[in-house]
Computed example of a mutant assay.
Amino acid sequence: MANKERFFAEIEQALKQVLPKDKQYIALHEPTFAGKEWEYVKDCLDTGWVSSVGKYVDKFEADLAEFTGVKRAVAVVNGTAALHICLLLVGVKAEDEVLMPALTFIATANAVSYCRAVPHFIDSDFTTLGVDAQKLDEYLTKIAEIRAGECYNKLTNRRIKAVVPMHTFGHPVNLTALENICQKYKLELVEDAAESLGSYYKGQHTGNCGKVAALSFNGNKTITTGGGGAILTNDLELGTLAKHLTTTAKLAHRWEFRHDQVAYNYRLPNLNAALGCAQLEQLPGFLQKKRLLADNYQAALANIKGVEFFKEPADCKSNYWLNAILLDKEFAPYRDELLAYLNEHGLMCRPVWNLMYTLPMYANCPKMDCAQAEDIARRLINIPSGSSLI
């Protein structure tokens, strides 16, 4: 294409117009440590409380619950562990099917596999990059039936227990429509909110729909604990059970090691929680900067034909965790060339994840037609998004 090189250069110039001029290479999403991280971590070292209990674990859980508006937050070692426990809490068992987007990070599918359940892949839409609720409803009308108050796949004869929407890059999915689907088909709603801390759907923080939700605090998330995650719930009994299951099901006793069921050592160390407490204190500022960065990108890219900056869905407030651009279909065949060009010119940019059913271990899982997810995957590029870039 004759205009390909000019198109690449226009995008590069637009991005660099927004980004800091004093850096030779700009990462996709670096953490920002500008608060009390050193003070809180040093306190852990000075007092010796560095492992899986301590005041920072308690504070981090309380602060998370307050910020997100849930009744209970349980801190764990990573977001995948959080989602694994969420699925167990809603009753996902071996051989159950769990509906989830084909367009997601592999942790969503892996958490289902940890339960020895079966991922069932569904399509995404262009307004949220997440689950297409209308298309899912139409699909379930064809393949699902209710037996004794539970949903079954007529094609595989397996129970369909839950749907796990993932808020892609922090953009909330249509939760109202998904709640209606879950009620209609007797499904549990489990939010994979790993990427959406600081995102709101119709004024309510993500993670408040359904019985449980999962967060992630990996090093590239909006806030980080190094590694880490959390389970969110508005059911206090489930919250207590989540804490029990993630702390080896150990019963309180002055000295004996008493455990009452097979459980998991998913505890978040106090050191990591200390980092998280300091990061949470800065979260409003991070979100403000990330929104300004997104606004600047949108303005800089507005007059370039062939590319669109992805904006938050209607009635939502996104954290803009990872900013994304979508190439017009005529430029889609050159996505990888553009990625190479941008990276060679000092801008760390990435494609979206490979669709789950294209991976060998999930190639034989059930799936609906995912034409929209395939189209998104061909055309989407993530661009630098850290809060330190403003």
Rank of each mutant, 00 (worst) to 15 (best):
M1G: 15
K4G: 01
E5K: 11
E12C: 11
L15M: 15
K16V: 07
Q17R: 06
V18C: 11
P20I: 10
K23Y: 12
H29N: 14
K36V: 00
D43H: 08
L45M: 11
D46S: 11
W49S: 15
V50E: 13
V53R: 09
K55Y: 01
V57N: 07
D63W: 06
L64I: 09
E66W: 06
G69S: 07
T80L: 14
L83N: 02
H84T: 05
I85Q: 01
L88T: 01
G91R: 01
E95C: 03
V98Q: 09
A102I: 08
A102G: 13
L103P: 00
N110P: 00
A111P: 04
A111K: 05
C115G: 02
V118M: 05
P119C: 02
S124W: 00
S124D: 03
D125S: 04
T141D: 15
I143N: 15
I143K: 15
E145L: 15
E145P: 07
R147F: 08
G149D: 10
I160R: 06
I160H: 06
A162F: 06
H167L: 01
T168D: 03
G170D: 12
K184R: 06
Y185G: 01
L187D: 04
A194T: 09
G198Q: 08
T206P: 02
G207A: 02
A213G: 01
F217V: 13
I223L: 12
I231C: 06
L232I: 07
N234W: 05
D235E: 08
L241H: 05
T248W: 08
W255C: 03
W255T: 08
W255P: 00
E256D: 09
F257N: 13
R258P: 07
V262I: 04
V262K: 05
Y266F: 14
Y266G: 02
R267C: 04
A274P: 05
G276R: 07
C277A: 03
A278K: 10
Q279G: 05
Q282I: 02
L283D: 06
K290E: 14
L292T: 14
N296G: 13
Q298E: 12
L301I: 13
L301K: 09
I304S: 09
K305L: 11
D315E: 15
N319M: 11
N323H: 13
I325V: 15
L327P: 09
L327V: 12
P333K: 12
D336C: 10
E337A: 12
L338A: 09
L342N: 09
N343M: 09
M348W: 03
C349P: 08
C349W: 09
R350H: 11
P360W: 07
A363L: 02
C365A: 10
K367C: 04
K367F: 00
C370A: 04
Q372C: 08
D375L: 03
R379W: 00
G386A: 14
G386K: 05
S388E: 12
S388Y: 06
